[in-house]
Every structure is written in structure tokens, then in C-alpha cells.
């Protein structure tokens, strides 16, 4: 399963919002952090808002904040907003045009997709936040071990409080 750029951007954005549900974050802030255009991100955020995952906040600067249930919302719920998993959408040929090789390869590829879907469906945002915390504490422990003293480590997804000191990330 190869996720489109919009889907990755949606996942990163939702995690940013869920880390601090009370905080309003502007599209420009996330766009700047991940090196994408605000225009591009606006489409992703408006889709997330339409689905009720985030809500737009009016007022000076505007922006969005998290409005989903982190214990219920899974990564798959987010991914499904942006990806079409219907195999017919991928396959442009009629079933009668498919060879045995096409079908055998299709069976292997769909096996991989099914495992990916099960993984995404089983990970809630609350679980993701815990995984991030574990990564952060693991990275900190590793740095302490390496330096012999406490060292600030920048994780992949920083806590929103640290956002200013975090470098810009570029989504692949």
C-alpha cells in the first residue's frame, strides 16, 4: 500500500492536532513545518474538518483544532478519507482481460494490502500518541547513554510546545 502525499500530510496534521487538542494551529504553521504549500494543505484540512476530525476556529489568524475522539479514531479512519481501496479503482482492465499472472500477482499484492489495512485499523490516535512518547523517551535514554548526560532530543513529531525549536520537515 502506497499512501499518497495528501494522506501522509493528513496523518501528520491530525497527529499534530491530537498531541494538544486544546491548541489552535494555523494551516500556515503546519505547511511551513512540513514544507508544503498552504493552499495544498488547506484542501487536506478542509477534508478533515468535513469529516469532523478537526474543527475550524474563527478569529484572528484562524486555524483548526482537534475535535475527534483520540481513543476511537484510527489511522485507517483518516487514510480512508483520502484513499480509494476498491481494487477496481486500481485495475483499469476488465476482469476477462486479466491473465493468470495478473491474478496471481494481484493476490499477493492484496495480501499485503489486507495486512496494512488491519494494522492501520488497529492503531488509534491515542495509541499513536503513546508510541510517540515511547519513541521520545527511547531517544532521550539513548542520548543520555551516549553522552553521559541529559541531552535534548528532537523526535520526529515534537510536542507542540517545542514547535518553534523544531526544524522544518519535508514530507517525501
Amino acid at each position: 500500500m502506497r499512501l499518497q502525499k495528501n494522506t501522509s500530510l493528513a496523518l501528520y496534521s491530525v497527529i499534530e492536532f491530537a498531541i494538544d487538542p486544546a491548541r489552535r494551529i494555523s494551516a500556515a504553521e503546519i505547511a511551513d513545518k512540513y514544507g508544503v504549500s498552504s493552499h495544498h494543505l488547506a484542501k487536506v484540512l478542509s477534508e478533515l474538518a468535513r469529516a469532523g476530525v478537526v474543527e475550524s476556529v474563527r478569529g484572528v489568524g484562524g486555524g483548526y483544532r482537534f475535535s475527534g475522539n483520540a481513543r476511537r479514531l484510527t489511522l485507517m479512519d483518516i487514510i480512508q478519507l483520502f484513499e480509494d481501496f476498491d481494487p477496481r479503482a486500481r485495475e483499469r482492465r476488465e476482469p476477462k482481460e486479466l491473465t493468470a499472472v495478473d491474478m496471481a500477482l494481484g493476490a499477493v499484492l492484496s495480501e499485503i494490502d489486507e495486512i496494512a489495512k488491519a494494522t492501520f485499523s488497529s492503531i488509534t490516535l491515542a495509541t499513536m500518541l503513546r508510541l510517540i512518547e515511547r519513541q521520545q523517551s527511547g531517544a532521550t535514554t539513548a542520548a543520555v547513554r551516549q553522552d553521559g548526560e541529559r541531552t535534548a532530543v528532537r523526535p520526529g513529531i515534537p510536542r507542540s510546545r517545542d514547535r518553534k525549536s523544531n526544524g522544518r520537515r519535508k514530507l517525501a
Binding site: 484510527t74 489486507e114 495486512i115 485499523s121 488497529s122 492503531i123 488509534t124 495509541t127 503513546r130
Partner: peptide
């Protein structure tokens, strides 16, 4: 793998 409820529980436990 379609037992999302229990899978999610085990995932939440790490």
C-alpha cells in the same frame, strides 16, 4: 486481522 476491537486493545498496550 478483522478483529479490530481486540487488535486495538493489544496495540494500545504497546
Amino acid at each position: 486481522r478483522d478483529n479490530t476491537l481486540i487488535l486495538s486493545f493489544f496495540r494500545s498496550q504497546g
